[in-house]
Design a protein around this nucleic acid. Structure first.
Length: 728
DNA sequence: GTAGGGTTAG
């Protein structure tokens, strides 16, 4: 900005007046577009000093600039110079009012004008279209005595932008009949109408017309043709159009970049991006968005920083994309900075940015901040509602989530999925099935992730019946080829005790990932097929590139423990850190302690506990104690019980185990002492629970309360049964 | 040739 101004100030206006004026005009336009208020004001002062201000050409540019900046006093000064009744000046004022949304004022100005021209009419037509007032706009269109190609195009593109492509195309036919020649802008709008209707044949006949009228060499028309081919997934044709273009602009390059992005060829897209002669915000947005979507959040963040460093202003979509990247990485600090920046430039209420901010705050656990942003979004859409709903749901605020869900203006399958996944995550399984059934009744088709969460619920309550039902629905939709759903089905069958079906689903999966192998190895181990589990683990290691994880190794240790392969188990345990790079957790130690204790290797078990770098789980001590009981080792039992007592001070599991051990030894006085201690400390044992399934509804029962809605009746019947049984 | 219509990303 500074250099441009300096250049201008150093040239003498009288030398080449016309080019000087042109330079001023283009600078003013530039300042206006980029919002550079200072630059504009400085140039205005300069022109005033030189006395060039009276040039109408310049004065209009200044007026537009001040209107853009909303500097009304300055704008009024200029209007006064013209006594206020110049046609062009009036047109500028009408346009400004339309941009600001003051349609009534724009119409008032229009009505009181002594004469109007083509531009006056067109501005009103396109202005009304912009605000979706199609009928009014068409009324003015028909009244317009001038009807140049620009007003025809304003009408066509207005329809297209409002999603009424068909009306747009009808208007285009009328244009052809009227004898007015369409121009490049008309064709661009018409092509975009073809894209919207998805009618490729129509697109091709428009292409024919474009060639016939000689617009096939126009850069912008070709750009829109490339987009048409892309949307119709005619990638080769798109590439051909691109290749035969003589000149290409940044839009052409971005369109072809988008083609590779669309094809999922991120490598080629990146190559194009690096080779592009020029890049703008949209090109950057395209590549950043794709890195973010494909999960390479760090690369997306890197590119975003680079973009800002190169002095480009991120667009709304770019902000929203980078906010969602930050959400995935859970980087709240940077997110808050961007939030502050977005607020400063007045974009906080934007629906895209707002929804991303809601998501960011919720993913970082700050639902309150998320709610504040949500409430500030001006025109909420279903995505914003879903972000807030998902936010509550993922943070376990199910009451808030349900409340929001019930009050949503519109729901889609993502909304249903969000609330269901919350119920699954927070183990309210009866709610899961209730809401899922409601969803099916409403006619909504569940998404793959939704099926996956409901299957997880089936696995958790071991409901084979529901699981099979879901399997059927998944087959019908052709979702069974999906890795995640295949894995979820494998897990569901294994956890519901149908290990054969589980293995069958696993074997038929066209593709397996780390999770698929994990659930199958775990399923086999926990269903008592220890040898098969170990064989599968070996198969995975030798045939795939999947590397063992924490859970798999736990299953492997569990399997070894259950088929008495103590030394093999110890070998795996030893290899965990050195070979697989996984530091053993408490549960791995517990499993090995259990394995040693069961086989009577009590001293080794005790030694392992003592060598642990952190506190053992209460279960590890209990396993050792139970081994001591089996192999009658009073000495170790004594020491272990003391340790368990110490542990019990801090955690209820220890207390429960200790009291169980006392109970099995018949030491009832100690048992009641412990129970009393637990009550005093406010520790509560998680009570056991069982359930029955009646007509698609799961009823759960627990020992310590009467939560069932019909518990009074149930107890009455129990009493009745008891008296029946006692009767002689 | 000062005011009005268009294409790329989400």
């Amino acid at each position: 900005m500074k250099t441009a101004l300096k250049n201008l100030f150093s040239t003498n206006p009288s030398q080449n007046f016309n080019s000087y004026i042109k330079k001023c005009a283009s600078l003013l336009k530039n300042f206006s577009e980029k919002g550079l208020v200072t630059g504009g004001t400085v140039l205005h002062c300069h022109l005033h000093k030189k006395g060039i201000f009276s040039e109408k050409f310049i004065a209009i540019k200044l007026l537009i600039m001040y209107l853009d900046f909303r500097k009304l006093d300055e704008a009024n000064e200029i209007v006064k110079e013209f006594n206020g009744f110049d046609l062009v000046v009036q047109n500028c004022l009408i346009n400004a009012n339309i941009q600001w949304g003051n349609l009534a004022e724009a119409r008032r100005l229009f009505d009181q004008m002594p004469e109007r021209n083509e531009v006056t009419w067109t501005m009103l037509i396109s202005g009304l279209m912009k605000y979706g007032r199609l009928q009014e706009s068409m009324w003015y269109f028909e009244m317009n005595p001038f009807k140049s190609v620009v007003s025809w195009t304003a009408g066509i593109s207005g329809f297209v932008k409002n999603g009424s492509s068909f009306d747009g195309l009808k208007l285009f036919v009328r244009l052809l009949e009227s004898g007015v020649k369409p121009n490049k802008v008309t064709f661009i709008s018409v092509v975009s109408a073809c894209i919207q209707t998805g009618d490729f044949a129509l697109g091709m006949s428009v292409l024919g017309l474009i060639v016939k009228t000689g617009f096939e060499d126009n850069v912008s028309v070709c750009n829109s043709l490339i987009t048409l081919c892309l949307r119709m997934r005619e990638f080769d044709l798109a590439r051909r159009v691109f290749d035969r273009m003589e000149t290409r602009d940044v839009v052409s390059w971005t369109a072809i970049l988008d083609m590779y992005v669309e094809k999922g060829d991120l490598g080629e897209a990146r190559r194009i991006f690096d080779e592009m002669p020029e890049r703008n915000e949209v090109s950057w947005s395209a590549i950043i968005a794709r890195y973010s979507q494909s999960g390479d959040h760090l690369e997306a963040l890197k590119l975003f920083r680079q973009m800002v460093q190169e002095g480009l202003k991120p667009t709304i979509s770019c902000f929203s994309c980078i906010l969602s990247t930050l959400a995935s990485l859970e980087i709240l600090r940077t997110g808050r900075n961007i939030h502050a920046h977005v607020k400063k430039i007045g974009l906080e209420g934007d629906v895209f940015i707002g929804s991303s901010l809601v998501d960011l705050y919720c993913k970082c656990g700050e639902t309150k901040d998320g709610r504040l942003v949500f409430d500030s979004i001006e025109k909420k859409n279903v995505v914003s509602w879903n972000s807030m709903l998902g936010g509550y749901s993922m943070n376990g605020q199910m009451d808030e989530a349900k409340d929001l869900f019930d009050n949503m203006p519109t729901r889609n399958n993502v909304s249903w999925g969000a609330i269901i996944s919350g119920y699954v995550e927070y183990k309210q399984f009866d709610k899961v099935f209730e809401v899922f059934n409601e969803m099916l009744l409403s006619g909504e088709t569940p998404t793959k992730p939704t099926f996956s969460s409901v299957l997880c619920a089936c696995a958790s309550v071991a409901s084979l019946e529901k699981g099979k039902d879901l399997h059927g629905k998944i087959l019908k939709l052709g979702f069974h080829y999906d890795v995640y759903l295949g894995t979820a089905l494998t897990d569901m069958y294994a956890k519901s005790g149908d290990i054969e079906s589980s293995k069958q689903v696993f074997d038929r999966m066209p593709e397996r990932n780390e999770f698929s192998w994990t659930v199958m190895i775990q399923g086999l181990a926990e269903s008592g097929f220890a040898k098969e589990s170990l064989t599968l683990f070996e198969e995975m290691k030798s045939c795939t590139s999947v590397s063992p994880n924490e859970l798999m190794l736990l299953s492997v240790l569990f399997a070894c423990s259950h088929c008495g392969l103590v030394d093999k188990g110890l070998q795996f345990f030893g290899a965990m850190e050195s070979v697989y790079g996984i530091r053993p957790k408490g549960r791995h130690y517990t499993c090995v302690v259990d394995m040693l204790s069961r086989s009577g290797r009590l001293y080794e078990a005790e030694e392992l506990i003592n060598s642990m770098p952190f506190q053992p789980e209460a279960n590890a001590l209990a396993a050792l104690l139970s081994g001591c009981k089996t192999y009658k080792n009073e000495e170790i039992a004594e020491r272990t019980a003391r340790k368990l007592g110490e542990l019990a001070e801090r955690n209820s599991a220890g207390f429960v185990l200790l009291s169980n051990i006392y109970a099995s030894a018949g030491r009832w006085i100690d048992v009641s002492k412990i129970r009393k201690l637990m009550r005093e400390k406010g520790l509560k044992k998680n009570s056991g629970c069982s359930w029955v399934e009646v007509r698609n509804h799961v009823y759960s029962f627990s020992s310590d309360d009467r939560t069932h809605s019909k518990s009074a009746e149930i107890y009455d019947i129990l009493e009745l049964l008891r008296s029946e049984m006692m009767a002689p």
